[in-house]
Write a protein that binds this DNA or RNA. Structure first.
Length: 274
DNA sequence: CTAACTACCTGAACGC
DNA sequence: TGCGTTCAGGTAGTTA
């Protein structure tokens, strides 16, 4: 489901729920993608940050809870916004009460397809999470440098779109925003040699499409929802992703949908020439 | 080390 | 209605 704008929207709602709270215990299914979750018990969340599509909760005692929503993951607070657990809750975090006498909240992790990941690691120790360890720069920070990005695109021999999806040249771009940014930058997704001028256009387009979507709290098609259960509002603004057959907003030629690197890919054959 | 495949899960939508 | 096929916003493991 979620790419950077969706994960950032979740982070903004999850951080105030978890920050400063002690996690008393976790109930979790024994799942391949859950690791050392029991270690969070008794630790207090100091803050919730984000890198790319990963949510990172810093805990006291030098621990860190790494969370990835996969395709269908979401967090909900039990009893809030009409949420009651269903058959797809895979883990539940029981938080200590804020004050003596209060009832502690329960944060549920719901994940239909079970591609989500929850791991407890020593703070900053990402060697067991290869994609996070090799993650590219944050696209909306000063660490995302246009010349370094151009150099990375020049180095690879992969087509540009699958390369973006590896998370190595830049963090947080998935299938939706790759199609949107390539359309905006007028770059064909199959291109293997992106020169400096086009790389700079793509650099800008990535920052624009992500920032615009964050402002609308992300793109909802089906599963993605925020901690309050609401949808993002960006779906109505997509011009490429999911728009195959519809006229290109720039040149009116029908957009083409193909499979590239195993992922559905939509682009304009006229204004995104090879 | 890179790049190409395949595997992991489940449900919704679609074709017959 | 029922059944089989395809697709889905993402990695992670294996192979060449």
């Amino acid at each position: 489901m979620p790419e950077l704008p969706e994960v950032e929207s979740v982070r903004r709602q999850l951080a105030p729920v978890l920050a400063g709270r002690r996690i008393e215990r976790v109930e979790a299914l024994a799942q391949r993608r859950f690791d050392a979750l029991e270690r969070v018990a008794g630790h207090t969340v100091q803050g919730v940050d984000r890198r790319g599509k990963y949510l990172l909760a810093t805990l006291d005692g030098g621990l860190e809870l790494v969370m990835h929503l996969g395709m269908t993951g979401s967090f909900r607070v039990r009893g809030a916004d009409g949420w009651h657990p269903d058959a797809y809750v895979r883990a539940s975090f029981h938080l200590a009460a804020r004050r003596a006498g209060d009832v502690g909240d329960v944060v549920d992790f719901r994940d239909v397809r079970r591609f989500g990941r929850l791991s407890v690691v020593a703070a900053g120790e990402y060697s067991g999470i290869a994609t996070l360890a090799g993650l590219g720069p944050e696209p909306l920070s000063d660490d995302f440098d246009p010349d370094a990005f151009a150099a990375a695109l020049a180095r690879t021999r992969m087509p540009v779109k699958p390369y973006l999806l590896t998370q190595r040249p830049v963090a947080g771009v998935g299938n939706i925003y790759a199609d949107e940014a390539l359309w905006r930058a007028r770059i064909n997704p199959h291109t293997r040699a992106v020169g400096r001028p086009r790389a700079h256009r793509l650099w800008r387009a990535i920052r624009e499409v992500l920032a615009e979507s964050i402002a609308r709290e992300g793109t909802t098609f089906r599963d993605y929802q925020m901690v309050n259960g609401q949808s993002g509002r960006n779906a109505d603004f997509l011009v490429a992703y999911g728009q195959g057959g519809r006229p290109c907003p720039r040149c009116a030629v029908p957009l083409r949908k193909v499979v590239l690197g195993g992922r559905g890919t939509t682009y304009c054959t006229v204004c995104q020439r090879r």
